[in-house]
Each structure stands twice: as C-alpha cells, then as structure tokens.
Design a protein around this nucleic acid. Structure first.
Length: 481
RNA sequence: GGCUCGUUGGUCAAGCGGUUAAGACAUCAGCCUCUCACGCUGAAAACAUGGGUUCGAUUCCCGUACGAGUCACCA
C-alpha cells in the first residue's frame, strides 16, 4: 500500500508551496487508495511558533486533505509529533554508532565556526571521526557536550532514483559528516525524518526539490540500517516573479503567499487547491483544467509532475477564483460572501438581487464592498457623464426629456422588478424614436452615477427600489436644470 | 566557488525522432448586449545557443549560456 506523509515544521503560517507539497503527497497516496499521514517536525526548538500546528491542521481541514494518521486522529505508529519521540532517535543513533556508521563529536561551536570561516577547509574537518573508544568514553563520563555525526564514505558514489528527476548521483566526497543528534538531545531533520518514515511505513517520500542533493545522505542511512529505501518524489519549486522581471523562490515579497492570506483576500479554498495542483503537474489527456479534490485523486499520477520550477501567477489564480465564484449557487455565494461585507445594508435594498447581480462580476469575495457601494449610496458624478457618443447623446436636452418621461412612467409602476420595469420603460424609446441603448443609458447613469455598472438600469432599480430610484432621477434632473 | 537539477509564447503547460508545435491565463480585435461582466469568434505570441547522432531533430548525446537548488547543532 502506498503511504505518504506531510511533515511540516510548525514555524508559522502555511506557505502555498507547503500546501502544494501536502496536496501532491495526499494525492499520490489517495490515487492508489493509500494512506496519508501528518507528522509534525518540531525538533527545532528555537524556531517553534505558538499556534503554528493549529494553522497546519485547519488548513488541511478546509482544503479537504484529511489524514489517516496524525496528531489528534492517532494511528498505530504514534506519536506523530517528533518532540514526543525523542528517545527513539537517540536509541537509533547509538545503534548507528555501534555499527560504525556514526560517531560522537565533541567539537565546540567555536571550533566549528572557525572552520566555517576558513574557506579552504570546506565544512567540518572530521576531527572526532577517529577518536578511540577510550577517549569517547572518557569525554562522555566527563559530561562534555556532544553531537552524533553520520560517518560518510570517503570515496565512491551514492545514487538513488527519483520518480520525477530520474537517477541522481553524488560523489561521496561531497558529503559532509552531518549531525544526526544535536547537543540539546534533539535529532536533526536529516536523521529523524528517516527514522520516522521507516517506522511509520512511509513508502513514498514527497517533498520539494531542495532536498534533491541531500537525499544521498539519507539513502546511506537506510542502507546502514539495512532498511528498504522509499520511493522518492521530489517536486519542482514554486517561484515568484520579481518587480524587475526575474524570478526567485516564492516568498512574501511576491504578495500573499500563505493560504490564510489568500483566504482572507477572498480566494476560495477550492480555487486555490485547483490552481496549485496545476503548478508543476499536468493531467494526462484532459480537456478541462477544473478539478475538485475527487477529480484530482483520480487524475493524479507522478509522471505528470514536471521538473522545471513554476512561476506562481496571481492572474490565473484570480481567473480560477472568479470561475469558482460564478459557479456557486446563489445561496452558497451569499453564505460565503457575507462575512466579507463590511457595511450595513439598508432594508430598502433588495439584498438577494444585489448579490445575484454581483456574483458573476467579482473575482474575489473581498471585492464585494467596492462593487456594491453605489447601491448603498449614489456616488458624486458630473453631468457630462450622461454624454455618450455611441448612443448619440451629444447634448443634455435628450437626457432631460428621457428622464422626465421615465419619472412619470416609473411613478405609476407598482412592482419594481426587472421585467416590469423594462416593459414599462420601452414605450418611451418608441415615443421619442430613440434606441433602447440610448434610453437605458440615461436612466442607468441617473440611478448609478457610474459609467460601468453591474447589471443594467432596470436591474439596478430593482435592487434599490422605487423610492431611491425616483430620488436619484430627481437629483439628476436637478443637475441638468 | 564545488556539486545537483532545470531551460517550449509574458505565465502555466502538451509534446516523448517526421505535427500547420495543442490547450489555458493574460494581451489585442470583432460579435453579442440596457453600460459592465459573462459568452462566442479571431489575432499576435515559443522550442536558450553551438556542435554532433540520424534520411530527418523541440524530442537523443556533448559543450556553452542563463536560471534555480544545495553546501547549518534549519527544515
């Protein structure tokens, strides 16, 4: 059975790149009916951020990335938080030392820093690699702080196969004797993820391609323990476009890059998921780009994952989002957009009609406020706005005539719904021998005060009602007098 | 700098030795229309570069350029 995991470290918000990794990891498992595990990698005690784990969990929940095993839900391989598994790592590290694949290192931070500054050395000089057993015992007994390092082969080549990138080989001489256990007793990522992945039965390791070149070290660990190596699936990076046109790893300076920021800006979780699924992956033979989670599960295969980094395109996300908003039923839309509405909507407004009109014209939920403002109060406008070349309105006389006629017709209309209004108003066009467009242009400007509006004149009047419509027409007439 | 990886229109991308090199977003034009939006139609727009291999390379190999990642008691 395919078992994958998402193993974030709780250091803050949920980056969109992380979410994509979680998504792909989830999909790879679910495509095969496998298991998806959430594991919290909190071994860096200094970067730990309060509440970060909750953000991770809630993000996975709203995007539908439900995990079969993990904190809260449990499972047979728990605990799923690394800080609660501390003893396990030391045990395995010591095993490695006994096998001669790792060693104690008593070098001080100061010494390491000095090595670091000296470019000629190029990393750790393996000073403690050949300490005698007696020396190690003595240091241990003396309570000298230590770390445990992996003993890399000095020559030869280590290779592994990645499902996306193919065969990757590194000269062992390139490999540092990396730290497995830190002086504070916590393991490093380099060590504990291997232990956990093995213990938890993870079959496919899915993660960003920044791990491509360190994976040989992990593979060596599996080999040392005599464990079966997992299938590696490294994902292309997500990039952002800089102001000067260059690209770099997607980060805050490119805009809202955390899931919650995007949601706060009015993006729908399902639109975000759909869009990021397509960044670095393409379905084999598909006519559509629209996928819900079920569709993704069915369509997702690793051979559709690309190798080259993808630039995150906010324009396209925006398009996906507007498409998803348009597809919402009116009641779903109302439910989801309401929390974004910041101003009071008066009773006189036909709220339902207004939202229906706006639904197909906004791209993010937060746009609702600016788009609906003119319904609530008439914006200031110049009378020149009535002039319109296409509708052959070159002077104010015709505007005045139209509005005067409209006012008298409207006064006797009882039900202000779109169809009735349209039917009542049309005779004016006939009477004055003008086009529908000309007639409606004058009225629409009067009731909206804007050149471009969501919906036509009659739809707008349906929303604001008889009283307000007539008041706005009166105001226009006053301006023109 | 060493190592690893990548390079098809502005962006996401299909292609997997022979194609008029798909499609989507964005852009532009036209149509539709009670303005806008939607929708429809169309346009412009790409195989980084130099060598091979081959009857034939976007596709395979090598070099170059450019880009990215990585070289932590971070993950």
């Amino acid at each position: 059975m395919t078992v994958t995991r998402f193993a974030p470290s709780p250091t803050g918000y949920m980056h969109i790149g992380n979410l994509r990794t979680a998504l792909y990891s989830f999909l790879i498992a679910k495509h095969d009916g496998g298991k998806f595990i959430l594991r919290i990698e909190d071994t860096d005690r200094e970067r730990l951020v309060e509440g970060a784990t909750d953000i991770i969990k809630s993000t996975l929940a709203v995007t539908g990335l439900h995990y079969d095993e993990g904190p809260d839900v449990g499972g047979e391989h728990g605990p799923y938080v690394q800080s609660e598994r501390k003893e396990i790592y030391m045990e395995y590290a010591k095993k490695l030392v006994d096998m001669g694949a790792a060693y104690y290192c008593f070098c001080t931070k100061e010494r390491l820093e000095k090595l670091h500054e000296d470019d000629a050395v190029g990393g750790y000089d393996r000073h403690c690699r050949n300490l005698s057993k007696e020396e190690v015992e003595k240091n241990l007994r003396a309570g000298i702080p230590f770390v445990i390092r992996q003993k890399m082969p000095l020559e030869g080549v280590t290779s592994y196969k990645d499902e996306v990138f193919g065969e990757i080989s590194m000269n062992n001489s390139e490999l540092q004797d990396q730290i497995l256990m830190k002086a504070d007793g916590y393991p490093t990522y380099n060590f504990c993820h291997v232990i956990d992945d093995h213990l938890m039965g993870v079959t496919h390791v899915v993660r960003g391609s920044e791990y491509l070149t360190s994976t040989p070290k992990y593979v060596l660990l599996y080999d040392a323990f005599g464990w079966e190596r997992p299938v590696y699936v490294h994902l292309p990076l997500l990039m952002g476009k800089n102001a000067d046109g260059s690209v770099s790893k997607l980060s805050k300076r490119h805009g809202a890059v955390s899931f919650q920021d995007l949601v706060k800006d009015g993006y729908l979780p399902e639109a975000i998921t759909n869009y990021i699924a397509l960044l670095g992956w393409c379905p084999k033979q598909s006519e559509t780009e629209f996928f819900d989670l079920e569709g993704l599960k069915a369509a997702f295969t690793i051979d559709g994952v690309s190798k080259s980094p993808a630039v995150f395109d906010f324009e396209k996300l925006l398009w996906f989002n507007s498409e998803y908003i348009h597809k919402l039923t009116d009641s779903d839309f109302t439910e989801r957009v309401t929390p974004f509405i910041t101003s009071e909507i008066p009773e006189s407004i036909n709220r339902e009609k207004m939202l229906a009109l706006l639904k197909t014209r906004i791209s993010t939920l937060s746009e609702i406020n600016s788009k609906m403002a003119f319904f609530l109060s008439l914006p200031e406008y110049e009378k020149e706005l009535f002039l319109n070349k296409k509708n052959k309105i070159s002077d104010f006389e015709i505007v005045k005539t139209v509005l005067t006629e409209a006012k008298s017709v409207l006064s006797s209309v009882e039900y202000f719904d779109n169809d009735t209004l349209f039917a009542s108003l049309m005779p004016i066009a006939e009477k004055l021998a003008i086009k529908t467009g000309t007639l409606m242009w004058c009225i629409r400007i009067a009731v909206s005060g804007m050149a471009a509006t969501p919906g036509g004149a009659t739809e707008i009047m349906e929303v604001i009602g008889k009283c307000e419509s007539l008041a706005r027409i009166d105001k226009a007439l006053g301006m023109l007098a």
